[in-house]
Design a protein around this nucleic acid. Structure first.
Lengths: 235, 235
DNA sequence: GCAGTTACGTACACTACCGTACAGACAGCC
DNA sequence: GGCTGTCTGTACGGTAGTGTACGTAACTGC
């Protein structure tokens, strides 16, 4: 999310710590490979491990009713999965789906809670991150309510590009439809439109961002709002 | 939210504390009258006071873009306003609008933070409440995305009835339209439909719940989901 | 008692999205 | 080459919602 150049393979929350705390913490982390489309947790599950993505991306998806799911957040190198633990609740509030394969730093719950008590800076950092996530969920809520599919798709692509740290990544229309809570056909139309405007190109799930600035124009203002909030609170 | 009878004029979060903590805290609270339609805070404002409603109701409304606002949460005697402070962030994430006039216990931020440090039970209670609110926001997000206006209206009326602790309260179609993020006319149609089914009656803003069970059937399952979560975490 | 304001009802053309169905295009595999 | 599964494009009727406009009823105040 930062505009500063990012070293691939680091997690911002961990990197922002004082070097003492950071070294101690990293020593206890296990670098883990997250596999595309894996479901790490389902809403209601007890949380046994937390994840700090470095090159991977995790989607937070909330089940609404028997027919519907909706993505409410995206976690990449700028964030973490396992926030309920900060609130002393050991229950996942959302489904956690691996949306982009890659690496993540992994800690067991007990070790994580231990480290949390040891480092005030760490705790502070994560509390602020939780605040940002709360705001983002609400923003996403409204975005899903008011904005058209094409704008939401553009926003999603931008957010994913930020976290993928690459201008191309793999994601099919079916997957996007699931995330945005629309029909696959709705994505096909919107994606086609973005492609006709030469903002993106795609072929069998391989999406490439061609014109980032244009995509920002095509997206709703939610993208900028979210980014600004992150900078304000954690920048 | 509890099914047990509720003494009007108490706040659940405060009442749930050990009697020592509770007495200490109540001694520092100032009972305040909240006026209908007052905006206590706007998103981004620094938080100078926190509120624990007893007979009042506060709506959390998130501004989405220049044309749209959306209610993401409802705070009555079961909750509080001022949660960001628990995360050490002194910035309101949402607009706080008085949706039901009445009393609330009020604390200045400094006193609140002080009390928070003094009582582990208080802190624990509020962290759990924050967890519930986070989940509810996501649920509301999806509800707004997938469910029809009539079902959402029914849910809103039920939630408000719980918090108003009365089967009648005052709210106009315009106000409801603002909260649910739809046209006023959309509310008129939905409300009319509920009235024709003899579930509610209304006249110039005075709404009366006639058939609670029927209203629960007419509402989406989100109402039950939310209630169940609250019981599970804070019951 | 009239005027102004507030609350609710109805009507109309329009749009985004839905559910479903079907067909073409491409990739991997035997 | 042909088969199979995956991914994308197109098509069609249906619906819940939009923006706008206008009308009516009820309460409020001078």
């Amino acid at each position: 999310m930062s505009l500063a150049p990012v070293v691939t393979g680091t997690n911002h929350l961990l990197a922002a710590l004082p070097s003492d705390d950071s070294e101690q913490l990293l020593a206890r982390c296990v670098e883990t490979e997250l596999v595309f489309a894996d479901i790490l947790y389902r809403s209601g599950d007890p949380i046994s491990h937390v994840y700090f993505p470095t090159t991977s991306i995790i989607s937070l998806v909330t089940p609404i009713d028997s027919n519907h799911n909706l993505e409410v957040g995206l976690v990449g190198y700028e964030g973490m999965f396992g926030l309920p633990l900060i609130l002393s609740v050991n229950v996942a509030s959302y489904n956690a789906v691996v949306q982009g394969a890659g690496q993540a730093m992994c800690l067991s719950t007990s070790v994580f809670l231990n480290e949390l008590e040891k480092s005030a800076a760490f705790k502070q950092e994560l509390k602020r991150y939780l605040y940002v996530v709360m705001s983002q969920i609400a923003q996403t809520a409204g975005c899903n309510r008011f904005h058209v599919v094409e704008a939401r798709l553009a926003r999603w692509l931008l957010m994913t590009q930020d976290r993928a740290q690459s201008d191309q990544f793999h994601v099919t229309h079916v997957f996007l439809a699931y995330m945005l809570g629309v029909r696959r056909v709705g994505i096909t139309k919107a994606a086609n439109s973005l492609q006709n405007k030469a903002l993106i190109s795609y072929k069998r799930g391989d999406i490439k961002i061609l014109d980032r600035a244009g995509l920002e124009t095509a997206s709703c203002e939610c993208y900028r709002t979210e980014k600004a909030l992150y900078e304000q609170i954690l920048g």
